[in-house]
Every structure is written in structure tokens, then in C-alpha cells.
Design a protein around this nucleic acid. Structure first.
Lengths: 115, 115
DNA sequence: TCATAATAGTGTACGATGCATAGTATAAGA
DNA sequence: TCTTATACTATGCATCGTACACTATTATGA
């Protein structure tokens, strides 16, 4: 993939990562596990992207977190809040609308309509 | 729409605007007309977003432009280049892959799978 | 005629995010 | 013991979307 296409793709992914993360936090997850969970689902995310994202979402009160020190090593578990669920549902709708409109637009480029 | 949701939505739209614009430039269009054309298609875009985007895409050689001074007032027409078409097709594929994966992920959040 | 709106574009500055990079620290495996 | 995997924090950069300010012409209407 060329460097230009890579930049465009990065910009495309922007924002969708929030959606992806929120979708996985109905059950508590810690950062490192989320990376791999999403990876398995085909959504690659860097640690350097995910950790700040989680902290941001907590600050915005969409997530709550708690340290678990009983396991082999300390893990910070995140789970979606009630408020987070509301935002998530609305954002999900926005995304669905967007993809529908864009799909229509991209389909249109195959015909020769000059207005 | 709350200010938080608005921010998320803006970030979601990011990158897709490039795709939307490229899809419309098989025939020459000028900025102002593009805004309205996209608006009619359900994709709102600010002038302050579109004009810089067009200049950026031209600088990256995905578009070429030419001034038309014969009409009622000067208009800068943009059209997609060969290179731009290639990038567009690839980006379109990326987008389709992404939306498919995300759709799967978002569907999954309705079940209770704990890994 | 004069004010206003619509048209068409440029330029600057700011906020948000994704990522590269670097660093800390523990556990597990060869 | 050395390396790798795990788990997280912190800093800084590049990109993009938008607000805002600005210029300038054409069209409309009181």
C-alpha cells in the first residue's frame, strides 16, 4: 500500500475505532486484551492508539475503569457506562446512516450522470 | 445532538469526505456546485472543508484544475486524474472492507459472548 | 438606486485523533 | 540469564474538519 493510500485509510478509520471499542465493552476488558480481540475481528489497532482512546472515553464518562491486582499482573479493566451506551447507540445510528448515503454516492459514480 | 456526539460524528465523517468528493469528479465540477451536489445526496460539507480538501487533492495529484472565466463569474473546475482514479478505486475497496468488518463487530454487541 | 443575499473563492488558526516513539515494569520461557 | 510477551504511561507530530475572517462579483428587490 502506497504511503498516500495509507494516509487516506488512516483517516477513514478515524472515529470508527471509538465505535469498535465501545461495541466490545459490554463486558469488562483490559487494554491489551482488547487489542487482540479487535485484531481477531479484523480491526487492527495500535496500543498507542487504544490506550489514549480508553482514557479519553473514561474522561468523557462513557467508560468506567478499575484495577485488578489479583491476577498475574495488574490490569486496568474498562466497561461501558449507561451514558456510554446511549452515546454508542446514537453513534451507531449515525454511522449506519453515513454508510448508507456514501454507498449510494459511490454506486452513482459508475453511471455517467452529468446533472 | 449533544456536543460530544457531534465531535464523534465529525470524526466518523473524516476521510469519507475524500471518498465522496472523488466519486463526484468523473465529470468536472467546481467547488460551490460540489457543496450543493453533495448536500442533495445527503452528505453535508462545509465550504471551509471542501475548498482546502480540493486543493489538497490537487497537490497530491489526484485532481487537476482549470479556471473557467467565460461564465458569469470565474469558476475553478476540478476533475479526477488517472492516478486519482486508481487511488479512488483502492480507497473504495478499503472502505468496503472496513464497513463490512465494523458491521460484523457492531452486530456482535447484541449477543452476550464473553470470549 | 442602494442594500442585501447568493455565488465563488482564499487564508489562518484551532481542536481532535491516530500513530510513532520511548520508557517503565513484571511474568514467562529458552 | 537473556529474551520475549504482557500491560500500561507519556510525549510529540501530522492530518483533517471546521470556525472565522476576508475579498469580490452577480442577482434580487425594496
Amino acid at each position: 500500500m502506497g504511503p498516500l493510500l495509507e494516509t487516506f485509510t488512516t483517516e477513514l478509520r478515524r472515529g470508527t475505532l471509538t465505535l469498535a471499542v465501545l461495541s466490545q465493552l459490554r463486558t469488562p476488558q483490559y487494554g491489551y486484551s482488547l487489542v487482540q480481540r479487535l485484531e481477531r475481528a479484523g480491526v487492527a489497532i495500535e496500543q498507542s492508539t487504544l490506550y489514549p482512546l480508553l482514557r479519553r472515553l473514561e474522561k468523557q464518562e462513557l467508560l468506567t475503569s478499575s484495577w485488578d491486582t489479583t491476577e498475574s499482573r495488574p490490569r486496568k479493566y474498562y466497561v461501558i457506562s449507561e451514558y456510554g451506551s446511549e452515546i454508542y447507540e446514537q453513534l451507531k445510528k449515525e454511522w449506519e446512516t453515513m454508510t448508507f448515503e456514501l454507498k449510494t454516492l459511490l454506486k452513482g459514480d459508475e453511471n455517467d450522470e452529468t446533472d
